[in-house]
Simulated scan of single mutants.
Amino acid sequence: MHIRILDADITTLEVDVIVNAANSSLLGGGGVDGAIHRKGGPAILAECRQLRAGHYGKGLKTGQAVATTAGNLPARWVVHTVGPVWSDSEDRSGLLADCHRNSLQVARELGAETVARAEPGSIREVVFALRGEAAVEVFRARHNSLA
């Protein structure tokens, strides 16, 4: 599996799947979640509303993942996952790991080969889209130290 680390806007990546750090409502939010919904257009929100009308009536739970169309984005799909809120009194790293595992499982079920985050499997390329050269350098240094 090939890993690319970029200073890039995730909404511009031509990959099979982008992973969205979603709001539990699945109806958009701020930051990257809001940008994905805005740039992806109404098709993403329409599918998220269908999910809320069905199995995810109370929203997406922390650690779960679900896919929608990517709408107007160059990606094929968006996998939405809700990460844990940081806590200094509780270790929530297991929930964060669930986000990654479940997002990758959904990507595999879709037949994705390129994902903006991943682990070994059928996925052949992972792109980490970070913002700013400082973030890219820190991430590369940490990645290289683990390789």
Rank of each mutant, 00 (worst) to 15 (best):
A141N: 07
P74N: 12
T69K: 02
T12W: 01
R52G: 04
V17Q: 04
A116F: 04
G28N: 09
R124S: 13
L60K: 02
D9I: 05
R142H: 06
A70N: 09
S24K: 15
H2A: 13
S25V: 01
R108F: 04
G31K: 00
D9V: 07
S145C: 05
D33I: 00
I5H: 06
S103V: 01
E109V: 09
Q105E: 15
V82E: 09
I5N: 01
G132Y: 08
T69I: 11
N23L: 00
L130E: 04
A46P: 04
V82I: 10
R142Y: 05
R140L: 13
I18C: 09
S25H: 15
V32E: 03
A107H: 02
V66H: 02
D98N: 10
E133P: 00
Q64G: 03
R124T: 15
V138A: 13
V17D: 06
G83N: 03
K58L: 07
V106D: 04
G57Y: 08
L60G: 00
A107P: 00
A118T: 12
S87A: 15
A21F: 13
E109P: 00
I5Q: 01
D98H: 02
A21S: 14
D98W: 00
E137S: 05
A97H: 03
H37Q: 10
K39N: 14
L96W: 10
A135K: 12
I123H: 10
I3H: 09
L45R: 14
L110C: 12
I123K: 02
A112F: 04
G30W: 14
E14P: 08
S103C: 03
H80P: 01
Q50K: 14
V79G: 01
R4N: 14
S93T: 15
D33N: 03
L51P: 03
E90F: 10
V32I: 14
F139N: 01
G94E: 12
R92Y: 09
K61D: 11
D33A: 02
A53R: 11
A35H: 08
T68I: 08
L51V: 01
L6M: 10
V82L: 14
G30K: 07
H80E: 03
R117Y: 11
P74A: 15
V15W: 06
A97S: 07
Y56P: 00
L73P: 01
L130S: 02
S93W: 11
W77P: 03
T11K: 08
G111K: 11
V127A: 13
R140A: 10
L45K: 12
N20K: 00
S93A: 15
D7Q: 06
V126G: 10
T12A: 13
K39A: 11
W86F: 13
G54E: 13
T69C: 09
R38I: 02
D16G: 11
M1S: 13
A46E: 14
G40L: 06
E119Y: 11
G54A: 13
G71W: 14
A67Y: 03
R117F: 11
A97W: 02
L73F: 14
L96M: 14
G132M: 09
G94M: 10
T68V: 11
A135D: 13
Q105W: 06
T62H: 12
R52Q: 02
L6G: 11
G31I: 15
P74V: 15
Y56N: 04
T11R: 09
R92A: 07
A147H: 09
R4H: 11
T81G: 01
G111E: 12
L73T: 04
C48E: 06
W86P: 07
L95Y: 10
V32H: 04
G28S: 03
D7K: 05
